[in-house]
């Protein structure tokens, strides 16, 4: 029983990170109908650049809340900027191109980030340790079930950011514009909403969340290399589709579902099947509900 709960806790932590990444996928898909393949790599950059930041500022040597907060903010700011640049340079010129071309451009950006990152002059191919920004402590214990402060922290930060996003999307003018563009590009344009700016802002926002997710990932799985983003990226995208791509609550639900499923599969079945379970669930759900758990059904008008 305790080991089951321990796995559930693991799953929550993992799921929170997936959900944060999934939000970026879902928001971008909402406004641009693009699977932003580079998103997982932005997440990786969040983790990787934080290592350098912590080294440079010295936060990595003495764990402190200040250091953690500063690193988190740094990662969000830098990733937000990177996301914005990617949108401007690689995606905007393709606004009217076939959607598949846009997708290939996204794949290209993803490969570019990974391959540049592997250069010796940049990060290099070898994994780098993520600094202990806070001291890992057991904060609660019931029998063999232990809860560490990192787990609590990751979950709280993830939930906090998601709550913030919810408020932002539902209670600001930008959020309203974003929803309008997601609902219908053309009409939004006709109503005077600057779709270009909204798309740009969405990329910045989504990438900032990915940056935060990068730091949280680093705290939990403290080895990072330039390829770190690929697998969590794909899984987070699966989470987004599972929940219903375009739906923010869907991303949450999907993220936590995948996190739990993985952690339980690794424990009860075999860790080699851990990577398959996300896809098995995805396929079963899509066959029953082709637009995901919370996705809107779209009827084609003829």
């Amino acid at each position: 029983m305790e080991s089951f709960l321990q796995q559930i806790l693991q799953g929550l932590k993992l799921g929170g990170i997936y959900a944060l990444i999934a939000l970026g996928y879902t928001m971008v898909y909402g406004v641009l109908r693009l699977i932003n393949f580079a998103h997982g790599d932005v997440f990786m950059l969040g983790a990787m650049l934080s290592i350098y930041f912590a080294r440079w500022t010295g936060f990595g040597n003495q764990p402190s809340w200040l250091g953690l907060g500063a690193t988190l903010l740094f990662a969000m700011a830098v990733c937000g900027a990177i996301g914005g640049v990617i949108e401007r340079v690689a995606y905007r010129p393709l606004r009217n191109a076939p959607r598949l071309s846009l997708l290939i451009a996204a794949i290209g950006v993803s490969l570019l980030i990974e391959n540049v990152g592997q250069l010796r002059q940049v990060f290099g191919p070898t994994p780098q340790p993520f600094p202990a920004l806070i001291q890992t402590k057991t904060v609660a214990q019931w029998g063999s079930l232990t809860v560490s402060n990192v787990e609590i922290l990751v979950l709280l930060v993830a939930l906090g950011l998601m709550a913030g996003l919810h408020v932002f999307v539902h209670h600001t003018r930008f959020g309203l514009a974003m929803r309008a563009v997601a609902h219908d590009h053309q009409t939004a344009g006709l109503m005077g909403i600057p779709a270009g700016k909204v798309i740009f802002g969405t990329f910045v926002l989504g990438s900032a969340l990915a940056g935060a997710a990068g730091v949280l990932w680093g705290l939990s799985y403290p080895v990072i290399n330039p390829m770190t983003g690929f697998v969590p990226g794909i899984k987070a995208f699966v989470a987004a589709v599972l929940g219903g791509v375009g739906s923010i609550p869907g991303a949450l639900l999907g993220g936590f579902l995948i996190g739990e499923a993985e952690s339980l599969t690794a424990f009860y079945l075999s860790s080699t099947y851990k990577d398959a379970i996300a896809f098995v669930i995805l396929i079963l759900v899509l066959l029953a509900r082709p637009t995901g758990l919370l996705g809107r059904k779209e009827v084609e008008k003829v």
Binding site: L94, A97, P98, S101, L102, A105, V109, E114, N115
Partner: peptide, 17 residues
């Protein structure tokens, strides 16, 4: 691999079809 991925992006930007 860097050149390869760069070319990919460039080809898409200049010849999306």
């Amino acid at each position: 691999l860097v050149v390869y991925s760069l070319l990919l992006v460039l080809v898409m930007l200049t010849r999306p079809q």
